[in-house]
Amino acid sequence: MLEGKVKWSNSEKGFGFIEVEGQDDVFVHFSAIQGEGFKTLEEGQAVSFEIVEGNRGPQAANVTKEA
Rank of each mutant, 00 (worst) to 15 (best):
E12F: 12
V28D: 01
V20E: 00
A61E: 06
K39D: 09
K7V: 07
V6P: 00
G4R: 02
S11Y: 12
F15Y: 14
G57E: 01
N10F: 08
G37V: 08
F38T: 12
V20C: 07
G54L: 07
N55S: 14
E3T: 15
V52R: 08
V52Y: 08
N62G: 05
A67H: 12
V52A: 06
N62H: 09
I33C: 05
V26Q: 01
K39I: 09
A46D: 07
G14T: 14
G14L: 09
V63K: 02
S31D: 05
F27K: 02
A61L: 07
A67K: 12
P58S: 07
G4M: 04
H29N: 05
V47W: 02
G22S: 05
F30M: 05
D24M: 12
G14R: 13
G54K: 06
I33R: 00
G4V: 03
K7Q: 02
K65I: 15
G22L: 04
A67T: 12
H29Q: 05
V26W: 03
E19S: 13
Q23K: 10
G44R: 04
T40N: 09
F30N: 02
E53P: 10
S31I: 03
F49M: 03
W8T: 00
K5A: 05
E3Q: 15
E43T: 14
I18D: 01
R56M: 09
G14P: 03
V52P: 01
N55E: 13
P58T: 07
E43V: 15
L2S: 06
P58H: 06
W8Q: 00
A61V: 12
T64E: 06
V20W: 08
V26K: 02
L41I: 07
T64R: 15
Q34N: 13
Q23I: 11
G4F: 04
Q34P: 06
A60V: 03
A60K: 00
P58F: 09
M1D: 03
G35P: 05
G35E: 08
A32I: 04
I33P: 03
K13G: 08
E66V: 15
G16F: 14
A67G: 13
K5P: 03
F49D: 00
F30G: 01
D25T: 04
N62Y: 08
V20G: 02
F49H: 00
L2G: 04
A67V: 13
S48R: 15
V20F: 05
V63L: 07
N10Y: 06
S11C: 14
T64H: 14
G22D: 06
A61Y: 09
E21W: 12
G37W: 08
